[in-house]
Amino acid sequence: MPDEPAADIQAALTALTRTEARTHVDPREPLDLHGLHLTGAQLTEADLAHANLRGTTLTEAHLFRATLTAADLAGATLTKANLREAELSTVLGLTPMQVATTYTNEGTELPSNVATSSGPATSVN
């Protein structure tokens, strides 16, 4: 498997996840990226609200300041994904084990069921 998406795939991801591009999308038709291999994808500030990301491989993906409101992350692989300052407070299917393998910071908004008592989950080293 490649370490990052091909240039044309990355360009399509960027176009599909820009906030400006998502304003005209019917919320009943969420972005469906389930099961895709998106290792190393550049999704900084992406709008992934309500996206189906079940089983998606997001290893080393850049999701800095991404909006994942009500996105489904059940079974997603997030190893070494950058979730710093990402909005994840209402995501579905996210587990503490998934978050433990990611990079987070105090600006990462996690669901209450995965947040630690001292704030966001511990980041990988």
Rank of each mutant, 00 (worst) to 15 (best):
A11N: 15
T17G: 02
T90V: 07
V25H: 05
A70G: 08
R18M: 07
E60T: 10
N113S: 09
D72Y: 02
E20H: 07
L83W: 07
L53H: 11
T57W: 12
R54H: 14
L78F: 01
L13W: 03
D47K: 01
T23E: 08
A76I: 00
S89W: 05
Q98N: 12
A21M: 11
H50I: 00
S112F: 04
D26S: 07
T77C: 01
V25C: 08
T67Q: 13
P30H: 04
L88Y: 03
V91K: 15
L58K: 01
L88G: 08
S112Q: 10
V124T: 02
L68W: 02
H24V: 14
D47N: 15
A61V: 01
G35K: 13
M97N: 07
A12M: 15
T19N: 13
P27M: 04
A21N: 15
E4L: 12
I9W: 07
T101M: 07
V91C: 15
G55E: 12
A15V: 03
L73A: 09
R54P: 01
T67L: 05
Q42H: 14
T122M: 03
A6P: 11
A86I: 00
A11P: 15
E106H: 14
L38E: 02
A76S: 09
A6Q: 04
E60I: 07
L36P: 00
N105F: 09
T116I: 06
G75T: 00
T104L: 06
L58T: 00
T23I: 12
T59H: 06
Q42V: 05
N113P: 00
R65W: 08
T104G: 06
L33G: 01
L83C: 02
S118I: 09
N82T: 03
D3Y: 12
A41I: 05
N113D: 12
A49F: 03
T19A: 08
T77D: 11
T104I: 01
Q10R: 06
A15P: 11
G55Q: 12
A41H: 03
P111K: 04
A81T: 05
N52G: 14
G119W: 01
R84M: 10
E60Y: 08
L48S: 09
